[in-house]
Amino acid sequence: MKLKQQNWGEVEGQSIPVQLFTLENSQGLSLAVMNYGCIVTSIEVPDRDGQKADVVLGYENLDKYLQGHPFFGAVAGRYANRIENGCYTLDDQSFELETNEPLTGQHLHGGRKGFDKYVWNFAVEQQQDAIFIHFSRVSSDGESGYGGNLVVTHTIGLDESNQIHFNFRAITDKPTVVNLCNHSYYNLAGHDSGTVDGHTLKLYAQFYTPVSENAIPTGEICSVLGTGLDFTQAKRIAENKACMPDGGFDHNLIIDASKYEGEYKYAAELYDSNSGRMMTVLTTQPGIQFYNGYKLSNKQWLGRHGERYESCYGMCLETQHFPDSPNKAHFPSTRLNPGEVYEEKTIHRFSVK
């Protein structure tokens, strides 16, 4: 295992310098991540012939990230995904958050200055077969409207089994809500190779949470059978895309726990037949948000080395709790109380076939 650490600049108004960490294993897989927003900037993966490509959308310097981006590789929090009208209630106390998603009028990914906009503290753990970067910060009581001082550790690591780890741990001094995930956009053919429509996807999910026109779950739990969300058998994304309005996927699916590996449930398998690259997603989380990046063309995103990222050039498989859970009592709870520990883990395992 190799580790390289370099200065990557500074963020105005934040005292911690930005550092970029590059981790590489003996299989030739490398991961680059910085402590600003815990952003994964690069994942280079060999194909079946040993040729490497960067399989995540992103930028080559800090300045581009500071100019704005659609959560390329970043942590989303304090609450990933949406909360209806930015409002929730805990113990008869109402909390009002920003409604920062213009198209829907909802609270999204923690607000305009969520966890992705902070420079985190860090500690490096080097093992013989793995390297982990432990990012940490305190989200203060009232930050972005949320209650409670939340002490958060987000660990990102790489091991010799070609596994990238995304682990979360948090405690609070007041009741609050927590939902954290990594928001990387993947293209297993390479970030500069066009759309992911030709990728084959399997989701270990037989049910999903339908949403109303404002992108908030209705509260129903519906079967994927007979819908474009049926990836219970591996299918080319393009095949199901034709069944979706605007060709868009941005849906929370309920992981069915039909296949386990220790404490982890299988959530997804993504495959690019041209390169032979495969990514298997395992998690302790109850849901996975599948977003195929169909809205990327809404703005001009000039990515790494000037590559223009168009609609569906990358896709997200965000393991998380369900959207709007604070307002849906029958959804898995996102409440965290003093004395409890929030802990969730996800693995992205890379292979070729």
Rank of each mutant, 00 (worst) to 15 (best):
L3K: 04
L3D: 07
K4N: 14
V11A: 12
Q14H: 15
S15C: 10
I16W: 02
V18M: 07
Q19P: 01
L23A: 08
L23M: 08
S26E: 14
G28W: 03
M34A: 09
D47W: 10
Q51V: 13
Q51W: 08
D54T: 13
V55C: 14
V55E: 04
V56H: 01
G58M: 04
L62E: 06
K64Q: 15
Q67N: 12
P70E: 08
F71L: 15
R78M: 02
A80T: 06
I83T: 03
Y88L: 02
T89A: 06
Q93P: 01
F95E: 03
L103C: 12
G105L: 06
G111Y: 01
R112T: 10
D116C: 09
K117A: 13
F122I: 09
Q126C: 11
Q127T: 12
Q127S: 15
Q127M: 10
D129V: 10
I131D: 05
S136H: 09
S136K: 12
S140V: 15
Y146G: 01
G147Q: 08
G148T: 06
T153E: 12
T155W: 04
G157N: 09
G157H: 01
D159Y: 06
N162H: 09
Q163R: 15
H165K: 15
F166W: 14
N167G: 09
N167P: 01
T172Q: 03
T172A: 13
D173T: 10
T176H: 01
V177G: 01
H183K: 13
H191T: 10
T195Q: 00
V196A: 06
V196G: 05
L201F: 02
P210H: 05
V211E: 15
I216C: 02
I216V: 11
P217L: 07
V224T: 01
L225I: 00
G226L: 03
F231C: 02
T232M: 01
A238G: 02
N240H: 07
P245L: 11
P245I: 12
G248Y: 10
N252M: 11
D256E: 12
E261C: 13
G262S: 13
Y264T: 01
A267F: 00
A267M: 04
E269R: 04
D272V: 09
G276Y: 04
V281A: 05
T284Q: 03
F290V: 02
Y294T: 08
N298W: 10
K299A: 14
Q300V: 14
W301I: 14
R304Y: 11
C312P: 01
Y313S: 08
M315V: 08
L317Q: 00
N327Q: 11
K328V: 00
A329V: 11
R335E: 15
L336C: 11
P338Q: 14
G339Y: 09
G339F: 13
E340S: 11
E340L: 14
Y342N: 04
E343L: 12
I347F: 07
I347R: 00
V352M: 04
V352H: 03
K353Q: 08
